[in-house]
Write a protein that binds this DNA or RNA. Structure first.
Lengths: 214, 214, 214, 214
DNA sequence: GGATAATCGAGACGGTACGTCCAGTCTTTGG
DNA sequence: CCAAAGACTGGACGTACCGTCTCGATTATCC
């Protein structure tokens, strides 16, 4: 068991594998939910900096000690809270073509990153760097779902023969969305629709004039 | 003036624009250097968490107040200290071909990210998310130099006609290195040579079978 | 009913009056004993600080809720556990003279206070200051027995005509042992045999040169 | 250096020896005073339990970190705060006779112990049992002063030839005041004027009918 | 002998305080 | 006049323990 060893209560993260522990003794789902909801509100209001453990405890009525029994760190709580609704934040695409689907996803994700939620996302991502416990939750509650959605498109593309053989889904996903994360984090350039489109186009068709020899 | 309004002392960051203020009164270069050197050592020993303001002050003999006259935040000091030597950390490439140069750069950067310095890099990047002052330093002392180096390769490629027209350098750079940053930060997959090669290949030749129509 | 209103199970404290309530419904003696024994061990190992409610519960297998049905507070459990064997810790004296008996008791008690058990005693005494419920148990299980033993000597002395008329047992006991407690608690001076002897002598014969006129 | 290694600011404790460190760099007296005053108020209002570190910090405006630089523990702050005015709480006695002076002191101290301040005193005394750092402050700021005052009376008595030779001041003090502390802490009997008088009388003239043979 | 009721183990929970850590500001002192 | 030294506030951290409470799973008497 990777992320925590504690129950999660209620809905499970989109993590394919049975990442989170089974409830041996049902720890109050109410408590878990209260904490998550309070955290979500705090994130919406003031981003990750506002979601301190004390604030979460105060707003949710869940004591700090209990929070630490449910999650390994405040980042983990925030990751779960933030990841809950994000499944729907970026809807799936079905434009009829693989290229279209992927390009649209890049555009939608870019817009998401450019939105206030994107700020929270970057704060969360940053927080996981020095918090391995939180990182597991972040991957489980956020990344995994998103990557799975894209992997599905990629799989469809493979079956259709649209995608280059030899390129696996992970590489494709990294290539399409890594650039957005790069911009989001360093802020060296803005996350505009044009930039997103350009990135998607470049990723799909390559940077060079030469055709791959394979 | 964005990053600080303070002198930087000694060597200038590779930031193209006149980002940093002119030394109106020469504030001790010795002090500046001492702080940077101490910080570099601390980063090497314990990463960004070790480079607290108190630690920097103690080790360098520079008082905290003085540090804040030279830099807007601790992240800024660390960014400068870390960026100093990083210019040489990834040597330029000249394989004879644009594709080769770019692929090699991706590989080298991937290895750098996978190294202990890569950890510091990610910590620094994470820190800039909630520290705009530090972010400016980070971009100036680290990113700008790297991007400039790749831009030069790209420019050469453009002149040689190796690269697809309509793709600007920024897009290309983001596409090539964004995926590495993505992996570095989320840790969803390891930063192996194979992954780097795969990313570079995919970026250069595109994800799809179809040829761009433009 | 002062100390708890709960049954005590097993052996009764040396409290003269019917201090502790009658069992309306028999509460397991086994449970009571288990808790007391576990607590005694914990006290021996780490003093009162080690005898937390959780530790007692864990070691004895008695749940916290049950502990609180048997005792009003953790101090009360500890007081009973500690008082159990302490009856024998300081044997009675019979030197043949009242002065000898009292002096010997002072010496023995001083040694007891100076021993590791003395530390626990002082911790317990300290704990009762902010725990009235525990205080009742402390008096019942510890003090009462000790005072009764001395009172017996005093009574014998009265009958023999050894002791000054008008001095009641309580005053005598306080005078003889108060100084030891004073030292034990404040630690301003060590609890040596010499000090104990000096105290006993001074108490028995008075501080002044003048003879009481009564 | 025993108690803290930190400066105390303002007035010095009555501790004879140079117990407290010399200020290498003057730490703000204002801060020290503010903390002490706030603590005194809190003690008066709610006793030691009310004088939590957070409460002291909040009321005094001195941050917790600073408090811990000035004192080793909350008990230490409270001891100093409480001890400040206690010098005057029990005035010196001068009845003309040694016996009178001592008896009066016992009575006054008994009344002090029986007062609300006495409760605080006992809480403080209890707290020092598990807080050696605080104990040093308690001895320095409270006990030392009181003992010194009695020792002066004793010295006078020695010079007058009123007191039994061979009884040192420490023994005398312990004998006179230990009984009061005993009662204060265990509460086995109330601290009445009669009891105090009886104790003083017994201490001064001895418990036995026999005259000391020395 | 089964119903009724309490006891009990297990341990989650809220609450309160703790003592620590670090950032960034402000003050004092010395050269 | 500037810089070193470092005191100071503020705020969050994660921990510890208390005493209460809610579960079911035993008992154990009483009808």
């Amino acid at each position: 068991m990777t992320a925590g060893g504690t129950r999660t209560g209620g809905q499970e993260p989109d993590n394919g594998t049975a990442l989170f522990a089974r409830p041996v003794k049902p720890r109050s789902i109410k408590v878990h939910e209260a904490a998550v909801n309070a955290t979500r509100d705090l994130l919406a209001e003031g981003g990750l900096p506002a979601a301190t453990i004390d604030a979460i405890a105060a707003r949710s009525g869940v004591s700090k000690a209990t929070l630490y029994k449910h999650w390994p760190s405040r980042t983990a709580v925030a990751a779960e809270a933030f990841g809950r609704d994000m499944a729907d934040a970026v809807p799936a695409s079905d434009t009829g073509t693989t290229a279209g689907d992927l390009a649209e996803q890049v555009l939608l994700v870019s817009r998401f990153y450019a939105s206030p939620e994107g700020t929270v996302f970057s704060q969360l991502l940053a927080a996981t760097v020095t918090d391995e416990g939180g990182a597991a939750y972040f991957r489980a509650w956020f990344l995994a779902g998103r990557r799975k959605a894209i992997a599905a498109i990629w799989q469809r593309g493979t079956e259709r023969g649209d995608v280059r053989p030899g390129v696996d889904a992970d590489t494709a996903i990294d290539l399409l969305f890594g650039p957005l994360i790069y911009r989001l984090l360093t802020g060296h350039l803005p996350l505009t629709d044009e930039a997103a489109t350009a990135v998607a186009d470049a990723a799909l068709h390559g940077l060079l004039t030469t055709t791959p020899k394979d």
